[in-house]
């Protein structure tokens, strides 16, 4: 497939290969004033981000997840230069984001899931024209990138429609295109699929996968949707209470958390519980049976075995809920020896 985008690797040579984003013991401490009486207030320090270190290589696609208030968006805000870290060292493409916010802005793209940056009352194309001029994108480059986004995100019929008339999914696609017209080397996405229908989600994911594969754009996304991570990210970082709790492949996350997927099996008739270790039957309802099996294992051998031994009508696999996975993982980490935590975070 031909790539309309300029390769990211040759866009800037100042960042070392292998460490496009670098965080070294980055901290963010907030003073929180809490009202305790009519006029009395109590000052309290909150460590939103507590000594986080990691690096992201060029072209990586990383999922950044954690419970609400864990420090995800604070990290993103520091990476984009919105917030100044209270401590530690932070570099994106060799730039200190808080010191050189506007220079960095030329090289990054940001999509805020629930806050559109498109112009509500104007046709979609007008927002793109503003990006064209504000980012000083060369004409040919702009046209090329726009054409490609329009094609892949299927925006062709929407360009002349006022943004207020777009559906949520259409608007999200429009926002993603707006963030990519200036060839950013890294794209930050905050909940890119929140509130979207199944088809829109699939379209957005497919586009991001292509973008990463063809252009080598580094992608960092926060999400509540485990499928986003599963389908897009080779690597996932879990943050809780401002600390990095896990950094590794998604499969490993399941392992740590002992999370389980569920295989729903419809048999021809009512039968005694299926025997197929390590899966175990958790529920039987007439001819339908629910089998739980470790999420880190492939479903294929299990399905093959059941198909060979039992009269099958239909089956489906249910993914564990991301909140449940994280909760389980955090729980098991608390129980485990402290070195497990450090092992994981250092990896």
């Amino acid at each position: 497939m031909n790539s309309g985008f300029r390769g990211a690797a040759d866009a800037g040579g100042d960042a070392m290969e292998g460490a496009f984003i670098e965080l070294d013991r980055v901290e963010k401490v907030f003073d929180v004033l809490k009202r305790t009486g009519f006029l009395r207030r109590e000052r309290r320090q909150v460590r939103a981000v507590d000594s986080i270190s990691f690096t992201v290589a060029r072209g990586e696609m990383v999922g950044y997840i954690g419970p609400n208030g864990a420090g995800k968006s604070t990290t993103i805000k520091m990476l984009t230069g919105i917030l100044t870290p209270s401590g530690g060292r932070l570099r994106v493409a060799g730039i200190d984001p808080s010191r050189e916010r506007t220079r960095l802005a030329q090289r990054i793209g940001v999509v805020f899931g629930q806050r559109t940056t498109l112009w509500w009352d104007l046709p979609l194309i007008d927002s793109y024209r503003l990006m064209h001029r504000m980012y000083r994108i060369p004409d040919a480059r702009y046209r090329e990138n726009l054409d490609r986004c329009v094609e892949l995100l299927e925006l062709g019929s929407l360009l002349d429609v006022p943004v207020r008339q777009l559906s949520l999914g259409q608007r999200m696609r429009g926002d993603i295109a707006a963030a990519l017209l200036h060839d950013p080397e890294v794209l930050y996405l905050d909940e890119p699929t929140i509130g979207l229908d199944v088809i829109s989600k699939a379209r957005v994911r497919e586009f991001l996968r292509d973008l990463n594969a063809e252009r080598g754009t580094t992608v960092l996304l926060t999400t509540h949707d485990l499928q986003d991570i599963e389908q897009l990210c080779s690597r996932v970082m879990v943050i809780d209470h401002g600390r990095l709790m896990y950094d590794g492949p998604l499969a490993g996350l399941h392992e740590v958390g002992d999370s389980e997927r569920t295989l729903v099996v419809d048999l021809e008739r009512e039968l005694p519980p299926i025997e197929a270790p390590p899966a175990r039957v958790v529920k039987v309802e007439g001819p339908r049976q629910w089998l739980a099996f470790p999420a880190s294992r492939s479903a294929a051998p299990l399905v093959a075995r059941i198909a060979a031994e039992y009269p099958l009508v239909d089956l489906s696999v249910r993914e564990p809920d991301i909140e449940a996975v994280i909760a389980k993982m955090l729980h098991s980490l608390e129980d485990a020896a402290p070195q497990l935590r450090s092992e994981r975070t250092v990896s």
């Binding site: 940001v110 806050r115 940056t117």
Partner: peptide, 14 residues
Amino acid sequence: RDGTLDTLLVRPAP
């Protein structure tokens, strides 16, 4: 209050 100032801070303009 609604946090939309952040969308201006990621633009390459004062």
